Amino acid sequence: MSTERPSSYVVGLDLVRFACTLMVCVFHLSWHKAEMVTAMPFGWIGVQVFFVISGVVIANSAARASPLQFLKSRFLRLYPAAWLAAVVNFGLLLSVPLTVFGAAGVWVDPTPRALWYSLVLGGTTFLTSAYWTLPIELAFYGLILLAIFGGGVRRFLPVARLLVLASVPYCILLSRSLVAGFELGWLEFGYGPKNMFLLRHGIYFAIGMYFWLLNSQRRLALLDRVLLALVLLGAGLEIFARAMQIVGSYAPGPAGPMSVGFLVSGALAIFAVLAAIIYLSLRHARDWVPRPAVARTVRSLGLLTYPFYLIHEILGATVLHAAQQRGLGPAGALLVALPVIGATAWLIAMHGEPLLRRAIERLLGWQGRATRATLPR
Rank of each mutant, 00 (worst) to 15 (best):
R326H: 15
W346V: 01
V298K: 06
V273P: 04
L355G: 08
Y250N: 06
G248K: 13
G332L: 03
G256R: 05
Y306K: 04
L304E: 02
L263W: 00
V336I: 12
V336R: 08
A293I: 12
A243M: 06
Y306H: 05
V319C: 09
H284F: 15
S265R: 11
S300W: 13
L338Y: 03
Q325K: 14
A241Y: 05
G261R: 14
A349H: 02
W346H: 09
P339R: 14
T344G: 02
A359L: 11
T297Q: 11
L274I: 04
L282E: 06
L268W: 13
S249T: 12
H351A: 15
Y250L: 06
V340C: 08
A349N: 02
F271Y: 15
H284R: 15
R326G: 13
Q245N: 13
L347W: 10
F262S: 13
P354Y: 06
V294W: 09
L328P: 06
I314D: 06
A251S: 10
H284E: 13
G248Q: 11
R242Q: 15
D287M: 12
G316A: 10
R357C: 03
A343P: 03
A317I: 06
G332V: 00
H321L: 03
A276D: 10
T344Y: 04
I348L: 09
L338A: 06
G261H: 12
A241E: 02
W288K: 07
V298W: 07
I311K: 01
L364V: 13
I277G: 05
L356K: 11
P339L: 13
I314F: 06
S249F: 14
I341P: 00
P292Q: 13
A275C: 13
A359R: 14
I278N: 11
P252T: 06
A322N: 07
V264L: 01
L301D: 03
R326S: 14
S281H: 08
A295P: 09
L356E: 07
G248D: 13
P252D: 10
R291W: 15
L356D: 07
L335C: 07
G342W: 00
W346F: 13
V294T: 12
G365T: 08
R299E: 15
M350W: 14
A255Y: 04
D287E: 15
Y309T: 01
G329V: 02
R358Q: 15
G248P: 11
